[in-house]
Amino acid sequence: MTTETKQAFSLNELMCVIASRELQNGDVVFAGYGLPLVATYLAQCTHAAELVFITETGNVRTTPPSSLPRSVDDLSLSANSDMATGLPEVTAMLARGEIKVGFLGGAQVDRFGNLNSTVIGSYQNPKVRLMGSGGANDIATFAQRTILILNQERPGRFVDRVDYITSPGYLTGPGAREKAGFTENSGPSSVVTNKGVYHFDDDSKEMYLASYHPGVTIDEIKELVSWDLKIAVDVHETPIPTIEEIDLLRNKIDPNRFYI
């Protein structure tokens, strides 16, 4: 890493940087539209040159063009891939356990990392009906681990129990995924928000606060969580982006600031 930047950075930029740091060299990553696309490309450009980037439209080992396209079905991604297949082939890769990391989002998340993007309220008579699963359930089910990216701007998003499990996290806690037939040692590994970063306890499978962003307090974060949020013993302020990371985001990856 290079020297930390003293210049201003946006929360979207910070979230992209944090998510990129969660990726490792050699990871096979299923990334969709938005911040996951930016984070994956940033990881490729910094510490994870051997990362294998796969899009939902079937592009395998994608190297994005000079700046990111505005959708994952852009032909420039196909032109910069080792293989251009389709959604059925990528779904088969998921089912075979070949995808190591998947990115997910949702309207609600609970303390065990279950995500809801289906309804707010009861399923039969919802207050709000949302877009549903798409491929999110497949990613949550079959990827070896998932990274969740959500905005945490109001109460009601981080809840003790989601109104509907669209994408399974650790379900009801320790052993629940395995009992339900999921691959052993799979599930969410981190949650990246505009307030802080969360990880999951190895034993209880419960989400805990690992770091808080600059200018945000732990008390402020706890106000936005509906359960008794656990705090890491070594909780700390989230490390800020480096000069290199900000330069890549603004001048190479997203110069038109379409995503960030």
Rank of each mutant, 00 (worst) to 15 (best):
G173Y: 04
R145Y: 05
F142P: 03
D163S: 09
R161N: 11
A176D: 09
T172Y: 06
R157N: 11
R157Q: 13
Y164F: 15
G169T: 09
S167L: 01
E178Y: 07
R157Y: 13
E178S: 10
R154S: 10
A176M: 10
S167G: 03
Y164R: 06
L150D: 07
G175D: 09
G175L: 08
N185I: 05
E178V: 05
R157A: 11
L150N: 04
T172G: 03
P168Q: 11
G181V: 08
F142Y: 15
R154H: 13
S186M: 09
R145Q: 12
I165N: 03
G181Y: 08
L148D: 07
F158S: 01
E184W: 12
K179W: 12
G169L: 02
A143R: 01
T166Y: 01
G169N: 01
P174A: 13
T172H: 08
L171A: 01
E178T: 08
R177Y: 09
E178L: 07
R157D: 04
D160G: 10
S186L: 03
Y170D: 03
D163A: 09
T183N: 09
Q144S: 11
D160C: 05
E184N: 15
F158K: 00
A176S: 15
P155G: 09
E184C: 14
G173F: 02
S186R: 06
T141W: 00
Q152F: 14
S186K: 02
I149L: 11
Y170S: 01
R177D: 07
I149Y: 02
G173T: 15
R145K: 13
L150E: 07
R161A: 11
Y164E: 10
I165K: 04
R157S: 07
G181I: 01
P155R: 15
A176K: 05
T146M: 00
L150G: 01
E153N: 15
E178Q: 10
N185G: 05
